[in-house]
């Protein structure tokens, strides 16, 4: 039996929306528990770090260009460049590295 693509889309959209909406709707009052507040403070750093590494190494065509892009982004972020600047510097570093790799190989 063939399932309609639109049924697939409906199911994924509903599940994804519920996962996002339920915590917002349930958390009616502000949390005062020190542990939970501390947990929520550290959460974005742990979460974004885990999403960045090692995924960034596998995102590019070559491992080495991913490493160069990663290092370039860390340096740019350390000097507190804006999000878009850091993103573009990382992209440029990957691009230049891959051009060099192609030229050498």
């Amino acid at each position: 039996m063939q399932i309609s693509v639109y049924l697939y889309i409906l199911v994924m959209a509903v599940v994804t929306y519920l996962v996002r909406a339920i915590p917002l709707l349930l958390a009616r009052k502000e949390i005062t528990n020190t542990f939970v507040r501390s947990f929520l403070y550290y959460m974005p750093y742990a979460c974004l770090a885990a999403m960045t590494f090692p995924a960034i190494l596998g995102a590019t065509t070559y491992l080495i260009s991913g490493i160069v892009g990663f290092i370039a982004a860390i340096i740019a972020a350390y000097f507190e460049r804006s999000m878009i600047t850091v993103a573009l510097i990382a992209c440029a570093a990957v691009f230049v590295t891959e051009q060099i790799i192609r030229w050498v190989m």
């Binding site: 995102a59 972020a77 507190e80 804006s82 999000m83 993103a87 990957v94």
Partner: peptide, 29 residues
């Protein structure tokens, strides 16, 4: 391919731009 490969790191650059600057002030991060 080379452009797609370069663009694919943009999102990670943004993440790093969010998490690294606060870590300079709060070293426990």
């Amino acid at each position: 391919q080379i452009v797609m490969s370069a663009l694919s790191v943009a999102i990670y650059g943004m993440f790093l731009a969010v998490i690294i600057p606060p870590a300079k002030k709060n070293h426990f991060l």
